Simulated scan of single mutants.
Amino acid sequence: MLGWLARRPGDILSINDHTTANRSLEAGSSKVKRMAARMGISPEETKRMIDDVWARRDEVPGATAQICAGATACGAPILSHDQCSAGDWAEGNRLGITVSEFPMTEDAAAAARAASEPVILGAPNALRGLSHNGALCATAAIGAGLCDVLASDYYYPAPLHAALRLWQTGVLPLADAWALVSTNPARAAKLHDRGKIAPGKRADLLVLDPESREVRAVFVNGRKVLDRV
């Protein structure tokens, strides 16, 4: 992982733990079957891999600290994931984490914001108006000033529609809502050449129909890659 970060400037590192939850799943569960299909192996082999990783869990803190130190040396942004408390945030801060991704509670998000750390929440959460798993509501967090970035979180049309919903429902002015999916994500990822329309920046642009809000054209680095009449 440290080799990847050293060779590929612009990458980010996200620290996740899904093993703790997945270790209790059986090979016949739908989630393990989906994981197996993605990897091209059997559910039984997937279950054995999860068990093998769990058996080595004592190695994780040291490995995580080493990886975070290397990422910090490379200048790569480091994201937390699913922090549940201010204590979780403090532990991540000690490791050098610089961005709070999907904090589960208001306390965790508030701790990050108090330290001027960007907070990422899911655009589907903001579009829906609530979390699908009972975690922090993105719309409420945005209203309270506890969210800087909206991520697609697997539903890729969500950022566009979430930004428009936040504007149309009066949660934020359009410019502030759009910053959640443009300027702020670029800043959090340390991609300083994009994220807003300004001289010297990449011309990554969406052209929306003013009535339907549908995407009519897309420009990537100044080159039109989509044109809908």
Score class of each variant (00 low, 15 high):
H18W: 09
D11M: 14
P77F: 13
V32A: 05
E211M: 09
A126F: 10
G75H: 05
G143F: 13
G122M: 01
G70H: 07
A21L: 07
I12F: 08
R223N: 11
G122E: 03
G222C: 06
M49C: 11
H81Y: 01
S116R: 13
A138G: 00
G222D: 13
A110S: 13
A144W: 01
P173V: 09
Q66G: 03
P103L: 05
A138W: 00
F219Y: 15
D227F: 14
W167Q: 04
Q66H: 09
G87N: 08
A108L: 10
I120G: 00
W4Q: 10
W54P: 04
C147A: 15
R187P: 01
D148E: 09
A114S: 10
A217Y: 05
T139Y: 02
R94V: 10
S116A: 15
E117D: 06
S42D: 03
H132R: 14
N22A: 11
G70S: 12
S131K: 00
A217N: 09
L174G: 03
P210M: 12
R8I: 10
R194I: 09
D153H: 06
S182E: 12
D193E: 13
A158S: 15
N133I: 14
H192C: 04
R223F: 08
S80K: 12
T183G: 12
Y156P: 00
W4Y: 08
D204N: 13
R202T: 04
R23K: 10
L127T: 02
A108V: 08
L174W: 07
G96D: 06
E26D: 12
N93V: 09
D82C: 03
H161V: 06
A73P: 01
G28P: 02
P43F: 07
P159R: 04
C137I: 00
A217Q: 15
L160H: 09
K196E: 15
R202D: 15
T64Y: 01
G122C: 04
A140M: 11
D107G: 09
V207D: 03
T139M: 05
R56P: 06
G10D: 01
A6V: 03
A86K: 04
T20F: 09
V60L: 10
A86N: 01
L160P: 01
V119W: 00
D107F: 04
S42A: 13
